[in-house]
């Protein structure tokens, strides 16, 4: 302790105090203040930029959500439209089929009626033909049969025979 007091130098203490206080004030004016201010400005700048980026990100997310929703809606609408169209198509096909069936049926009926008529006409004509033909044949046969006396006699006789039998 005594050695410490002996070693203590007032001059050094005085200069140290004066020089250090001067150094603190000088550095405060020319170094610390500008340095700390610059750093603070930079930090607040960085913070603001980060905040802005965060906001932009949020906005972007909102925008994306909106887009997604719009897309979803559009998809649903298209789906509905497609469904309607499909139904319409089926209905149209069904209608057309029904129509065609009805027409076909009608045509078939008409055809059948026409065929029936034709058939009757043809039958009537056939009958006439057959009657005429048989009369002609019968005339020819009779004429042929009755061309000679003998034959006439023979016929009469055979008829008589038949008649007798009856």
């Amino acid at each position: 302790m005594e050695k410490l007091i002996n070693e203590f130098s007032i001059g050094l203490f005085f200069w140290m105090l004066v020089l250090f206080v001067a150094l603190v004030f000088l550095l405060r004016k020319f170094a610390w203040k500008p340095i700390l201010d610059a750093v603070e400005t930079r930090e607040s700048g960085i913070e603001n930029a980060l905040k802005a980026a965060e906001n932009a990100k949020l906005e972007m997310q909102n925008l994306q959500a909106d887009n997604e929703r719009l897309l979803q809606e559009a998809r649903a609408e298209r789906e509905a439209m497609l469904k309607d169209a499909r139904e319409l198509k089926a209905k149209m096909i069904a209608d057309a089929e029904e129509d065609a069936q009805a027409k076909a049926n009608k045509m078939i009926e008409q055809a059948q009626a026409a065929i029936e008529g034709e058939k009757k006409a043809a039958m009537a004509e056939l009958k006439n033909h057959v009657a005429t033909l048989s009369l002609e044949i019968a005339e020819k046969v009779v004429r042929d049969e009755l061309s000679s006396k003998d034959k006439q006699m023979e016929l009469v006789e055979s008829m008589l025979v038949d008649a007798k039998l009856n």
């Binding site: 130098s9 007032i10 050094l12 200069w15 150094l23 500008p34």
Partner: peptide, 30 residues
């Protein structure tokens, strides 16, 4: 009463000057 610029006082002066130059130039670079 001794207020001499001793070796230590001289060193303190040099260090002060050095710090002033170092941090002064650092402040300027901003």
């Amino acid at each position: 009463l001794d207020f001499s610029i001793t070796k230590n006082v001289f060193t303190i002066l040099i260090v002060g000057l050095l710090m002033f130059l170092m941090f002064g130039s650092m402040a300027k670079s901003y």
